[in-house]
Write a protein that binds this DNA or RNA. Structure first.
Lengths: 344, 344
DNA sequence: CTGTTAGCGCCTTCAC
DNA sequence: GTGAAGGCGCTAACAG
């Protein structure tokens, strides 16, 4: 059922039908009613292909998940994608999804979306400190919004969670429990939030007069496995930490496993703190102390921001930083008499 | 840069340029070379909007994740979506993603995609025994493929994992370890795989001469929370099970938590088995015995199937059932002397 | 108030 | 080997 067919049924011109349905006020109420009724009855739906060619807009937004398949156990991205997709649909936009591990292939995906004119805008997730994607999109002048800030020189809308605040309150929490050797199971250095978090951690240490010790920092790639390995390394130090601050819940779960393997108890011998408050965090043993981020709300807000941007809003006015909230559970507890024995 | 502009640059007609680029052989090699070079140099890319209107195809495939935002911690869907998206792109198709909890809103999403002509085909995930979505798509004649079978009367391509086999070998494993009271932390009854799995479980019991006891079956909704609750109920039976077979890893994690809370040890007092082999399964304490499904490969294969279907392949020829593999870890072990004491 | 006309960018008969 | 013309479905400027 096309506009033309509908018009023929009604003995009207295509134009009139189009305008009647679009709600123009230069069409008589009688005609409009007749058109509406017929459209309803015959199940007319405008063909988006025609509308899109006409308007030059694809009515689609792109999202490239920055992880290779097989390494995306992170529900974070699913929540983000789903909430984005849902809210975008309310704005009449489709969400087009692909994935690619950071690197040349990832940039190729962006070029495909942008230069192949497959989307009107883009959402960038998990920003990096120096972010090629942002530089590219800014240069091309494509509307885009980011989950996370970046030091890449460009002005763009973003939502971020204040990782500095997060790690500061988490470290303060541990310090209050008596911990003075707090290991960091850190995220990759290239990620933008890594720096904010480290600096929050540092602030808490300084305020408590605890010396800065780089041997207490180990890096992982946000997977359980990498958290496990990083924790292993930290726990085998001569003077091991009594607490582990981890950059996400997955690494915290890996870290707890390492603690267990060392014959110690998370929350008793070694405290462990995560980040994200995934649903699973309530069900680990012991349940995980962690920082809660509002993922779902962020997705919806990012969708709104992108629409506002495309409608001409200023990027400067579309920048938000939210505070994470510390959720204390059993995996963090008072420091034990002395530091725990190293494993083995 | 449009075809017309490119043609003008070359002093050629649009037709010739179009055909030169499309590889028709009725264009001279010299012209073709000239056209190719200019297209390259000027960065010509065909506008998909024009192609789509012309061909009547949207070049997009829809996926509606059957879960409300906030309840989709299931990395399964992310893996599926990402692997689908990547492979579809190789076929020149975009993946359009939304989500909706099963129910009227979900059907509305499908209608939006299909009747709104926003996609050429659809992927249905987590099929249900009687599946409205399948009935709808079959009736509309839209090309679609499913992850999972269904009893809904329709012939369609699918990939499924043999849950009957899975739960049978898992139950056999537990029986070999001496368990005779094996509780089921089951998935929702409306899901198609639930029945296959229960029947595999039943077969194993029968083969071992263990009587069927419906009080050992509790239902959850695949979240940790529901697994926790179901396990609580089972463990508070007068004669509690010594092993818990769970329909996915999340519920298994919830179940292990319940076991712990009852002062018992997963893998010692009560064995726990999951399903999916999520990355996290290696890092729980104890690590989780579970059934491994090839999710990533399934996504890619589903994309291929859908393309084949749209190219005229018979649906009957596109139906595959894969075998899951039992991965034995520490959460399952020999039955303890007697049944464990109920908690509290 | 309604209809005619044109054009978005592409592809594909058909004619030369 | 190449060009002209038409049309996919829609909207909007412009007449009447």
């Amino acid at each position: 059922m096309t506009l033309r067919e509908l018009a023929r049924h009604l003995n009207l011109s295509i134009t009139t039908v189009s305008r009647a349905l679009a709600g123009y006020d230069d069409v008589s109420e009688a005609t409009r009613a007749r058109v509406r009724e017929a459209a309803e009855r015959l199940g007319y739906q405008p063909n988006p292909l025609g509308q899109r060619l006409r308007s030059g807009r694809t009515e689609a937004i792109g999202l490239v998940i920055p992880a290779a398949p097989g390494h995306m156990s992170d529900p974070f991205f699913l929540e983000l994608a789903a909430s984005l997709g849902d809210r975008l649909r309310e704005h009449g936009l489709d969400l087009v999804l692909t994935s690619a591990a950071p690197g040349p292939q990832e940039m190729e995906r962006y070029r495909y979306l942008v230069e192949g004119r497959r989307v009107d805008g883009v959402v960038v997730a998990r920003t990096r400190r120096h972010d090629e994607r942002i530089a590219y999109l800014a240069e091309k002048g494509v509307p885009f919004v980011c989950h996370g800030r970046s030091e890449t020189p460009a002005v763009f809308p973003y939502i971020d969670v204040d990782g500095e605040h997060g790690f500061r309150i988490a470290a303060e929490h541990l310090i209050r429990l008596g911990h003075r050797r707090i290991g960091l199971v850190n995220s990759p250095e290239e990620l933008n939030f890594t720096h904010h978090r480290v600096s929050g951690y540092r602030q808490a240490l300084e305020a408590a007069g605890i010396p800065w010790d780089t041997s207490l920092i180990e890096y992982g790639d946000l997977t359980e496995e990498s958290g496990y390995r990083a924790a292993k390394r930290l726990l085998s130090l001569e003077e091991p930490p009594t607490a582990l601050l981890c950059a996400n819940d997955w690494m915290a779960i890996g870290a707890m496993h390492a603690v267990r393997e060392g014959g110690m108890w998370p929350g008793k011998d070694v405290s462990v703190v995560g980040y994200d408050d995934l649903p699973v965090a309530r069900f680990t043993d012991p349940p995980l102390t962690t920082l809660r981020q509002p993922i779902r709300a962020s997705g919806a807000r990012l969708a709104d921001m992108l629409v506002e941007l495309m409608n001409g809003a200023k990027a400067e006015a579309l920048q938000e930083v939210h505070l994470p909230e510390l959720v204390v559970r059993g995996s963090s507890g008072p420091v034990a008499g002395g530091p725990p024995q190293p494993p083995g």
